[in-house]
């Protein structure tokens, strides 16, 4: 193998990962477009029922077919993107804000505060995440907002731990001592000096958490605990398709495909970001 050839080979290998990330980014952009311009993009209204067109297989007029009420599946998927992304982003915002705050306080103040907060997080970790989401959402009742809270709370410990360990590694460094010597307040030190230095792992974790949140949302809706009909949530659509799996299998395929594509895209972006921002962090 010649010198140039092998160099090109290894460069390509290193790029392969980023190809995936870039591809993921394009898919995510497309999904965001779907979400924002759902009204313009969708060929039909997501709730418009047509009893002449019940469970018709994909055709030229209905590209992905129609469901048990004669609603256009493609239009429902496009509107579903809106719901999934909304819930995903807001749920992660909740966990990010709560988790980062708890982690920052625990790591920064240390001692007893740290001990109590992190033990609480440990206890929450003892309940498997999806189970906790199910219990919380069943307690709060169905609905978009409650779903976000239920899903958001489940990944608080992960953010708290991440934030805490970042804070601990940064806290001891000289520039924090310098800031303290200049008389900066605790809040100021945390927000202006520590937070920016923890950003990289938080960004990576957020991306991966959005994927998780979308997965949980779909799962909860599939179990009938999330978003209720007629709203076109992807998991809910799969749940509704179950009775018709024998005759109208396509109803069970497209919503799942939509979920999977979204999650794959987010995972690729997350992995790519981690390699780019935070090469030391373990996979």
């Amino acid at each position: 193998m010649s010198k140039n050839n092998s160099m090109l080979h290894y460069t390509l290998i290193r790029l392969r990962r980023n190809y995936l990330a870039i591809l993921g980014l394009f898919v995510l952009l497309a999904l965001i477009c779907c979400a924002v311009f759902a009204e313009q993009l969708a060929p039909y209204d997501y709730a418009k029922q047509d009893y002449m067109m019940i469970r018709k297989a994909p055709s030229a007029t209905h590209l992905l077919g129609t469901d048990e009420f004669g609603r256009d599946v493609l239009s429902r998927l496009i509107f579903g993107a809106k719901i999934s992304l909304q819930v995903g982003l807001l749920a992660v915002s909740i966990s990010l804000v709560l988790g980062a705050t708890i982690g920052a306080i625990a790591g920064y103040f240390g001692g007893k505060t740290d001990n109590i907060l992190m033990r609480l997080m440990d206890i929450q970790m003892a309940i498997p995440t999806i189970l906790l989401a199910i219990v919380i959402s069943s307690a709060l009742g169905p609905g978009l907002f409650n779903l976000m809270i239920a899903v958001g709370i489940t990944s608080v410990p992960r953010f708290a731990r991440l934030m805490r360990s970042s804070v601990l590694s940064i806290k001891g460094q000289e520039f924090i001592g310098a800031a303290r010597a200049m008389g900066a307040s605790h809040t100021r030190i945390i927000l202006l000096y520590i937070l920016p230095n923890c950003a990289a792992p938080l960004i990576v974790q957020s991306t991966l958490s959005v994927a998780n949140a979308i997965l949980y949302t779909a799962t909860l809706s599939f179990l009938g605990l999330g978003i209720q009909p007629p709203y076109p949530e992807w998991g809910g659509m799969l749940s509704a398709a179950r009775p018709y799996i024998r005759n109208s299998g396509y109803l069970s395929i497209f919503p799942g495909l939509a979920i999977m594509i979204t999650i794959v895209a987010l995972n690729c972006i997350g992995d790519g970001l981690r390699d780019a921002l935070d090469p030391k962090q373990k996979r």
Binding site: A218, R246, I253, G256, M260, I263, N267
Partner: peptide
């Protein structure tokens, strides 16, 4: 494996039913 971690469990189940039970 990337697809594997990204597939919702319930969809995997539905697909398996579709393939191995229905078809």
């Amino acid at each position: 494996t990337l697809l594997g971690v990204s597939m919702p469990t319930f969809w995997t189940g539905l697909l398996l039913i579709l393939a191995f039970s229905v078809h």
